[in-house]
Amino acid sequence: MASSSLSNASLAQIEALLVPNAQSSGQSSEFIPQLYYALHQVKKDPNSSVNSLETATSSIRHRLKQCKSHIAESEECRALLSKTPEEWEAALRQRQKDLAVKQQVFARLERQIRDLGDH
């Protein structure tokens, strides 16, 4: 099984469900190829009662539903994906600034204590 390059497990799950990977083609998630092949089979035998496009594409629909419920259930996923990357950049920049302020406070305390100690 090829491992995902994504370190966040939640995102990796989405990728595993939707993005086809040539190495792990056992569980194929290539929707369009599956669809056109299914259409081909329907075309060959349109009157078969068992061979409807619905049944042939049920695995696709199942995957899509799986992915949707995964996103809906994973708070981490939702939180991450509810902002655009641009919005995230801004949020992270702010968080970085906040961190710098905290670190300055800490450094000042350190300095003051050290100065006290020197007396």
Partner: peptide
Amino acid sequence: LECLPKYDEIDTRAKTLDEEHRDTDEK
């Protein structure tokens, strides 16, 4: 879906920042 790697990177950075915040708070 092409954005997933970008989100992944953002996630890693956010987690690192959170950890640094926690460290500094603790100290």
